[in-house]
Write a protein that binds this DNA or RNA. Structure first.
Lengths: 360, 360
DNA sequence: TCAGTGTAGAAAAACGTTTGTCTCCTGTCC
DNA sequence: GGACAGGAGACAAACGTTTTTCTACACTGA
């Protein structure tokens, strides 16, 4: 059945104002006036009808390319992100996409995989393609850009750049107080990859809150993520390794849900049960968090909302509005199965009553 | 800290050939010749130097918009897909993105959420933005489009349209023979949502192979997915409901990994263990499949490869090549923990030795 | 009759490229 | 000294819009 494809698609060029005008003996400008309902132009209804009819027949679609060249907006923005995967970026993009679609905007997505050179050059290439602004997700920007820019989960202090960011302080409170109340004192702290923009802010907030609660952050109970990926593979090896030498803890505070899944898997493979032996707390609340076994207790970032908030902010800036430098987003603790009260360290304690599952 | 953002970004328009020319007393065309190394033009090296120097100083970036208007390629394609989520689409996009980046192409992504009207209008809007071609993932296209088009996981028979598709027959063999060898005879068959392009082909292949193996597809053991989402929520309710009335089966053949996770969750909540009581077979091999507990035995679709194959095909068509109408991709069975030999139906049989975990 | 006022539309410029043609100017050769 | 060749570059057109300006005509009122 590999039936050969025909030589080439017809691909005749789409209708232009000139073409429509020629059919009617009118000039392109007149056609433009009609189709745009330009105010202050006297054109008889009969003519308007004729123009619209032919435009519909020819399936006329104004060329945004030509419009943009004239200096109008292209109704297009660029999204700069590390990776399209199963991590949280994707869900943010989904929120952005919905809002942009609603406003008749389109977007380019570019993944830089934390390659500094790409982060540097992409904005220029996007500008050459006429984007009206840029939305950067979880990305370290070195300079302000010569176009409207909004950062989502960035924290770079740049002039003219608006930041959509989580209230990290609150997030740390939600997470640590939850574990604290359950009786956890020996906690493994997981620190994100150095390239993630959230890493530093979250870590500092965590240390502050831990100190307030009197929790000790033991150096040998810190897990540092390094691998650049959106898969649970980022946390499996370090947690697995930790378990070889160290089991004197009752909870793991993970950097995100994906790493929580990797951690649970590693615990599971070492014969430890979650949450009976070790509680695991995630971060983000990605879609699969509630369906994981055990389902993840996690600090929810309203990812889609962060996306739409950022997109809305960018469109406002493009339209000339002034916005505050920081738009803060509130996290929320979602209680599920992966955390539980401290029993005794080690395998063999009695299985606590299973919580009722709360999918969705 | 809501420090007000300054009025507006400087946003001076980027350098043009004219601007460079003015600085040097040269015409735009001469500058163009130098910067493009247009052959057959005699320009002294001294002048070339001067031009390049000023271009670099002004950070000149040719306007692809203007170039496109002149009739050149825009080096941009459009990707049409149902949703950006944790399902397999995202991973396909990732494969597309990498290949396009390598070839200096950019892409628009548009999510239609199976809205027929959007599927109809988006291609036109993309064309107005100058895309050179279109890549549709898991999308039913009604008409051929007036531009090069490649379908990934589509199966629409359209003239001039190239299809990248899985070998569904082989996939069905891999899945069913695996379950058959493990002793499963009472199998729940899950049928995908009607809007998914894979649903029909996969179902037909499944029925054929089941017949070959002498497996009976019992109507009351068919689970039909209907919800439009990328989350395990698509399968939790129907499987949960099935379990209220029907437990006389030993395996579930799921439509994809996400629905396998939802199914496992539902089984778990009904007190059934996987794979001891019920084997669950996924499809796709998404990133989290190997880290799920239990990890998923699944029929892998090489998603990134499908993406890059599709993108490569599209670029070839754009470049004028003729391609076969179908590019077939081979699936592969990935053995993990969620399937096991039939013991006896019901809870309480002895726990089989746990397989060694194979993350990654 | 003639200035004024609409009306209906054409013409032109501009955006930033690319590309085919044209124009000088400087040598060189016979 | 005149023809010719090449070198160095300008000029113009075109792509499809939008927008400003211009034209031609008809009608009005005094």
């Amino acid at each position: 059945m590999p039936k050969a494809q025909n030589p080439a698609v017809p691909a005749l060029r789409p209708a232009s104002l000139k073409l429509i005008g020629d059919r009617l003996g009118l000039s392109p400008s007149t056609v433009s006036f009609v189709l745009n309902n330009t105010p202050g132009r006297s054109i008889p209804d009969a003519t308007r009808e004729r123009v619209r009819k032919v435009a519909a027949e020819l399936n006329y679609q104004p060329s945004i390319i030509a419009r943009t060249l004239r200096g109008q907006r292209m109704q297009t923005i660029g999204i700069l992100l590390p990776e399209m995967g199963e991590g949280y970026h994707t869900r943010v993009v989904s929120g952005i996409g919905d809002l942009l679609t609603e406003r008749d905007y389109f977007y380019f997505t570019v993944q830089h995989r934390h390659n500094a050179k790409l982060i540097e050059t992409y904005p220029r290439l996007l500008q050459a393609r006429g984007v009206d602004g840029l939305l950067a997700i979880d990305t370290h920007l070195a300079h302000p850009l010569p176009m409207p820019t909004v950062l989502i989960a960035g924290h770079t202090e740049l002039a003219h750049v608006c930041n959509v960011m989580l209230d990290h302080e609150l997030a740390a409170h939600l997470a640590l107080e939850h574990l604290y109340r359950l009786g956890h004192r020996k906690i493994v702290f997981m620190k994100g990859q150095s390239f993630s923009t959230d890493t530093e802010l979250r870590w500092e907030a965590t240390l502050r809150v831990a100190a307030q609660l009197g929790l000790v952050v033991e150096p040998n109970l810190i897990v540092q993520l390094t691998v650049d990926s959106d898969s649970p593979a980022i946390s499996y090896p370090p947690v697995h390794q930790l378990l070889q030498t160290q089991r004197d803890f009752t909870a793991i505070l993970c950097f995100n849900d994906v790493s929580a899944m990797g951690s649970i898997r590693a615990l599971h493979d070492s014969g430890l049960r979650v949450p009976e032996d070790v509680s695991v707390l995630g971060f983000d609340d990605i879609q699969s968090a509630s369906f994981h076994v055990p389902s993840l207790t996690t600090v929810r970032q309203p990812l889609q909302e962060m996306g739409s908030t950022g997109a809305d902010a960018l469109l406002r800036i493009i339209a000339g509005e002034s916005l505050p430098a920081i738009l803060q987003i509130e996290p929320e603790l979602i209680l599920r199965e992966s955390t539980g009260p401290v029993t005794r360290m080690g395998v063999g304690t009695k299985k606590p009553a299973r919580k009722k599952a709360v999918p969705l």
